[in-house]
Simulated assay, not measured.
Amino acid sequence: MGDESELLWGVGAVAERVGIATPTLRTWERRYGIGPSQRTEGGHRRYSETDIQRVQLMNRIVTSGVSAQSAARVALSLDSGGLVAALASEDPLYNAPGHVIATPVESVTRIVAAAAGLDIVGLTSVLADTVRDWGVLGAWVNVLAPVLREVADDVESGGLGVESQRIVLERLEAELRAVARTYAPRYVGARPLVLASVDAEAESLALLALEAALAGKGVAAFSLGFEVTGDAVAGLLRRIKPAAVYLWASSEEGARDVVLAALKADVPTPLLLGGEGWGSVLEDVVDMARDDVPVEAAPDLLATADRLFGLLQAAPTPR
């Protein structure tokens, strides 16, 4: 039985909520295992919120023309975070007829294998397929970030050469930049968004993923790029008074100086901090922040994209 505080749903309620016929839900449960995972005290099977998200994703994939068997394979491969990412994707699981979506594990395996074999063509192809199938941020959460972690671990253990890691980084950077260029940004805003990374480019690909995702929403963000200095961030803050600033850091080295410079610019702009580099820095700067210059942890790239877009829309025109 699940958490007693969790609201559980019967098959009829799920059918009405999701818009799928009850017999179809029963068929998906019987044939593919897409069904309720919880039981009541009386032994009745019930859908949790995660079960319902799995049904929604299954339905979305099947509606796009993919076979139910392939759709179920993808939906069952994802945990609750992966399901949220897939459902929130800008272009979730888009497919040409007959195209079979690889699961995240399969995609990671293919990318690592292509890198190990220095197969540039294969690597480029699977990266493009992954971004197309999952959307930029869905791909990042489900496949690309796990790939980077696995490749780094393999290099450290000696199972993969550093040349293979460099190829993955270069091809992934090229893919994310290409995706961003396919959109025609149409919205900057009276107070635009600013993106910047404390790290070098190789450690900052999440920033490119966020930039590409915003471009998909039609938003052209100011990017200060990589290895940004505090002076550069403070200078841009004073000149354009942006709607929000997103700073990425994977280690604490240099992170404190950059965010302190942003705070000292004394511009009423929210600061969103992404990456693992903020650690003890975050607690310090949150204590220093003012009401009109809030500092927020932004660990979830999907939520961050939505948050930035909301701040952009809500930002008043500067006087």
Rank of each mutant, 00 (worst) to 15 (best):
G19N: 12
G230C: 06
H44S: 09
A128C: 01
L7F: 05
E296R: 15
D266E: 15
D257E: 15
V267R: 13
V108Q: 14
A265N: 11
S204C: 08
L172Y: 03
R31F: 03
L311P: 00
S250L: 11
V131Y: 02
L8M: 11
V179R: 05
V74T: 05
I167L: 15
G216S: 10
T304M: 08
A234M: 12
A314S: 15
R307T: 13
A243E: 09
A215V: 06
V11R: 15
S37I: 07
D154W: 00
H99P: 00
A262E: 03
G98W: 11
E173W: 03
G10W: 13
R30V: 01
E211M: 05
L8Q: 06
L308S: 03
V62R: 11
L195P: 02
A68E: 15
E201G: 03
P92C: 07
V143E: 01
R26Q: 14
D51H: 11
E203P: 00
T24N: 08
V155G: 02
A68F: 03
K241I: 02
G10D: 15
L311E: 03
P299N: 05
A75L: 07
V259P: 00
V55E: 08
A255K: 09
V74M: 11
P36M: 12
I52R: 08
T124L: 03
A128K: 01
G2K: 14
V136D: 05
R256E: 14
A180E: 13
G33E: 07
V285E: 02
R238K: 15
A85E: 06
G81W: 08
Y32Q: 08
V11H: 05
A200G: 07
D300G: 05
G42S: 07
G82S: 10
L148F: 02
A289L: 09
S164T: 03
A215R: 13
E49T: 12
G235A: 13
D199T: 04
V259E: 04
V121L: 09
L210H: 10
L127C: 02
Q165T: 01
S204I: 09
A145I: 01
R17A: 15
A212T: 05
S197M: 05
L76N: 12
R166V: 02
G275L: 10
L160T: 03
L144G: 01
V168D: 03
I120D: 11
V126C: 02
L236W: 11
S197Y: 09
L169C: 09
P268V: 06
G117V: 08
A209R: 08
L207N: 03
V121T: 10
S89P: 01
L144H: 02
A88V: 00
L169P: 00
S5K: 15
E41G: 07
R166L: 10
W278K: 05
R256A: 12
D291M: 10
G274A: 14
R307C: 01
S280D: 10
K217T: 04
D306A: 15
D257P: 00
R60W: 07
A212H: 06
L118A: 12
